[in-house]
């Protein structure tokens, strides 16, 4: 279990202490029905410092970051922001729920793509993500999904095999390095 002090600093600015468990976040969440823990329960776990359970939930990876919870909260708790912190912690500590690890894999692939190109190369990302996901759990349906769309996208001029790259890619990499390596540039 984390110490409360550590909890406090990571969740600073989210007003997590103000939550009085009304459940309005859960009531408005478009994906609450898919979650193993409800948004209000995740906030409660954070209040109690029981981060392990929250980090291992599938709920944090089901979240679509639609900000409805944060917007409607009567106590102005940044519930979506709390889930961001939980996802980051879960990823860093390798606690992501296996059932939804593909969401994490996708987001990691996304960031990796940006790091290299400065902008998103969709074809590269999709290919990379699918290969990773396939290698991880032999997800053949996922591998095949959307492949049928490719010709249609191509036909509509929406698929760019050679994606855009920014000119100054070195600076992008330096920004990533400064944000990922603790202490540097911070």
């Amino acid at each position: 279990m984390e110490t409360l002090e550590k909890v406090d600093s990571a969740f600073a600015g989210t007003s997590v202490e103000a939550c009085y468990q009304c459940g309005k976040c859960t009531g408005g969440c478009p994906v609450a029905g898919l979650m193993d823990l409800m948004p209000n329960q995740l906030v409660r776990l954070v209040q109690l410092g029981r981060l392990e359970k929250a980090m291992a939930s599938t709920a944090i990876w089901h979240c679509v970051s639609c900000q409805t919870c944060t917007t409607r909260c009567p106590q102005s708790v940044d519930c979506a922001g709390i889930l961001d912190v939980l996802r980051q912690m879960s990823a860093e500590q390798g606690k992501a729920a296996p059932e939804l690890r593909r969401v994490l894999v996708f987001q990691k692939a996304f960031l990796d793509n940006i790091r290299r190109n400065g902008r998103l190369n969709e074809v590269e990302l999709i290919g990379f993500f699918k290969t990773l996901a396939f290698l991880k759990d032999f997800n053949i349906p996922l591998l095949m999904k959307d492949t049928l769309l490719a010709p249609q996208l191509m036909q509509r001029g929406k698929l760019h095999v050679i994606g855009e790259k920014v000119r100054d890619r070195a600076v992008v990499r330096r920004i990533f390095d400064r944000c990922t390596k603790p202490g540097k540039g911070a």
Binding site: G23, M38, N40
Partner: peptide, 11 residues
């Protein structure tokens, strides 16, 4: 659309 926090489900 609301919640029942005692069962931990949206209602």
């Amino acid at each position: 659309r609301g919640a029942d926090t005692l069962v931990g489900e949206p209602v």
